[in-house]
């Protein structure tokens, strides 16, 4: 199974959009390389706005570009883009309903050994708390490209949380994204695994392991964290317990969002897998996934535990 860095699909989709639509511009914080924008810059040198290492200004400048009728894709490491510029994200984008696309690169613990300064495990909690924001976490290259296109077609602020960690193809190349709609990746009646981003492929592997255990697990891709597909979550809750899996703190992220929906529709037992409200120790992303139980085996164990206690 070949694995891919979603930043490649991101930049290819952005170039294709820019060819067709002169309003598309890229905004960077000295992040041309890390956001995989070199080819975009070569093709459209006048449509790259590099503000230097200045994230507050970057989001403000993007707001002004949108005011002028352009569609800016603001590309930077997610940890700095969201954390450093959070007030601009709240006021200039969310509250103002500016047509700006925030593209948080190398999110989660992708920067591994560089440490918690460079991890972005709070960005979903921050951005989904802000009014008017659309928050989307693609799981593979096709979904990443589709999300880039869907963001351009949507008039309003969008946060795309993109990883650099290798993931397999899960969707066909012509996949289409609908903000607010969950994808049922696998049907199942005993337990539902809900994940997004880098965790979707792991949830599917866990479901295969559970099948060997005689447990019929559903897998739902909740790439759209906001708006949330509350109907899909309610249907899953009626079927049985839910495990959420996210490359994010379990405080306020995907698990939190699902729990908020479940307790107001059909309360059901849940397990929230992710980073449990602490800063990660030193280690590679692979090490950290093992450390925090974000592997197919650990997901399987959590699901078995939940199904066992439900029976």
């Amino acid at each position: 199974m070949s694995l891919h860095d979603c930043r490649k699909a991101f930049s290819e989709a952005l170039i294709a959009l820019a060819v067709a639509d002169e309003r598309i511009v890229a905004v960077a914080n000295d992040s041309i390389g890390s956001s995989n924008l070199k080819e975009f810059q070569k093709r459209f040198p006048d449509r790259v706005v590099n503000v230097g290492i200045a994230e507050q200004n970057m989001v403000g400048v993007a707001t002004g570009l949108a005011n002028g009728g352009l569609i800016p894709y603001v590309c930077g490491a997610s940890c700095f883009l969201t954390g450093r510029a959070l007030e601009q994200v709240k006021v200039d984008l969310g509250y103002s309903r500016s047509n700006v696309k925030l593209c948080g690169m190398s999110s989660g613990v992708a920067y591994g050994e560089l440490g918690p300064t460079h991890h972005s495990i709070e960005d979903l909690a921050w951005t989904r708390a802000i009014g008017n924001m659309t928050v989307f976490v693609p799981a593979d290259p096709a979904e990443t490209a589709a999300a880039v296109r869907a963001a351009a077609a949507y008039d309003g602020p969008v946060f795309l949380r993109i990883s650099r960690l290798p993931v397999p193809d899960l969707f066909p190349p012509d996949h289409r994204v609908h903000f607010g709609r969950a994808d049922v990746m696998r049907e199942g009646k005993d337990v539902t695994l809900m994940a997004n981003g880098t965790m979707v492929c792991r949830a599917l592997e866990a479901a295969a392991l559970l099948a060997a255990d005689g447990i019929d697990a559903a897998v739902i891709n909740l790439s759209s964290v906001r708006p949330l597909d509350r109907a899909a979550i309610a249907r899953a809750a009626q079927a049985g317990p839910i495990v959420t899996i996210e490359e994010h703190t379990i405080t306020g992220g995907l698990g939190g969002a699902v729990a908020e929906a479940v307790v107001t529709s059909h309360p059901v037992q849940m397990k929230l897998l992710g980073i449990p409200g602490e800063f990660a120790p030193t280690g590679s992303p692979t090490f950290l996934f093992e450390h925090f139980g974000l592997t197919p085996a650990a997901i399987r164990a959590a699901a078995l535990d939940l199904v066992g206690s439900a029976r």
Binding site: M58, T63, G64, L65, G68, L70, V91, D92
Partner: peptide, 22 residues
């Protein structure tokens, strides 16, 4: 622009002016 928190206007202004140039 929605302003209130200080230090937001000039970055947005840079973006408006840059958009005109682009």
């Amino acid at each position: 622009a929605n302003t209130g928190p200080l230090g937001h206007g000039l970055p947005i202004g840079v973006g408006c002016a840059k958009a005109a140039k682009i």
